[in-house]
């Protein structure tokens, strides 16, 4: 099967700033692919190039089998939910959708059917007749997602779909995205700087920093690349325990605590307790630390994703969304 998207050395420079620095990747048809990275990593710029809004400085890409110069074909094949609001506030929800349907050359009957279908999907039937300026931030986002889907794109780009939304709305949108991916077989490319979001939703993730891909894989394989889960144990005779557990995983004693790096910590914990019991070693505390995508990011960059989260521009965006 041909990939939904393939890029080769895709690069975008703004003056001397290399926003996207030679990115090569393949996104399979039907997968949910995440671009995870801090603010300014180049996620939006990458999506803007793939959706024909800006031209790359160098490199190439195929979207739905078409080179970037075939703008019209690509535009027909994709849907996009932009990072920043993009609705006409003066129009009603329904009018926004109708305008979209017309832009995508849908006949009027089909428009009517799809409009009510997507409105139902995002639970906005009741509000559809009201002007968008009366909507909450979450409602606007849902309307934008509904709009992005209305013409049944093969590929859907979601640029920070839940930025600035409250946790409940966020979970609702996650559910909705995975349902959509399963039901409609839409390939979804989403960007986020929320690790939990990438972890919960994506089949595969590219972690991107300063315009470069620094790690790529399934959420599990990325986390496993750190060596596995860590069991932290407090016990009276840590040294003895450590030597007993040497075969089970990598052991390390710091500040009287023993940490054992293992695969599948949930299953290893009872085995470990059994070994300790057999040798009459009293364990006073046991905890399991599972690595997160954040740890993966730290491993590769020495920084946290959160550190750069609250840029002034970002704060402004959050405020704009929350309205």
């Amino acid at each position: 099967m041909k990939p939904a998207i393939a890029t080769k050395n895709l690069t975008k420079e703004f003056g001397r700033n290399r926003a996207v620095a030679s990115i090569s990747l393949e996104i399979k048809q039907g997968e949910i692919f995440g671009l995870l990275g801090p603010n300014g990593a180049g996620k939006t710029t990458t999506i803007s190039m793939l959706s024909t809004l800006i031209q790359p400085t160098s490199g190439s890409a195929q979207v739905s089998g078409f080179g970037l110069e075939r703008q019209d074909e690509i535009r027909k094949a994709i849907g996009i939910v932009f990072q920043d609001p993009s609705l006409d506030d003066e129009l009603t929800g329904k009018e926004n959708l109708d305008f979209h349907g017309r832009l995508y050359h849908m006949p009027s009957q089909l428009r009517a059917i799809r409009i009510s279908a997507v409105l139902k999907l995002v639970g906005l039937e009741d509000k559809a007749g009201q002007q968008v300026k009366t909507y909450s931030g979450g409602m606007k986002r849902r309307l934008e997602i509904a709009r992005g889907l209305m013409h049944h794109p093969k590929i859907l780009f979601l640029d920070e779909p839940t930025l600035g939304l409250d946790p409940q709305t966020r979970r609702g949108i996650w559910d909705y995205i995975s349902k959509l991916n399963q039901r409609e077989k839409v390939t979804i490319i989403l960007t986020t700087h929320y690790m939990e979001e990438a972890d919960a939703l994506c089949d595969r993730i590219a972690i991107i920093d300063r315009g470069k891909i620094i790690a790529l894989g399934t959420p599990t394989s990325l986390k496993d690349s750190l060596g596995g889960d860590v069991l932290v144990i407090e016990a009276i005779e840590v040294e003895k325990l450590a030597s007993l557990l040497n075969g089970t995983g990598k052991t390390k004693i710091t500040a009287g605590q023993l940490s054992v790096t293992v695969h599948n910590g949930e299953r290893m914990a009872p085995k470990l307790l059994a070994i300790a019991a057999k040798h009459k070693i009293k364990i006073t505390s046991l905890s399991l630390k599972k690595p997160t995508l954040e740890d993966v990011f730290i491993r590769h960059t020495g920084r946290t994703i959160r550190e750069e989260e609250a840029s002034p521009l970002d704060m402004m965006r959050v405020r704009r969304r929350a309205r």
Binding site: R75, K76, F82, D84, L87, D88, D89, H100
Partner: peptide, 16 residues
């Protein structure tokens, strides 16, 4: 205004 409110992008990314 269409540009500032982002609506212009909706038009520019459409096959029009």
């Amino acid at each position: 205004w269409d540009r500032q409110f982002g609506f212009l992008k909706e038009i520019l990314v459409a096959p029009v």
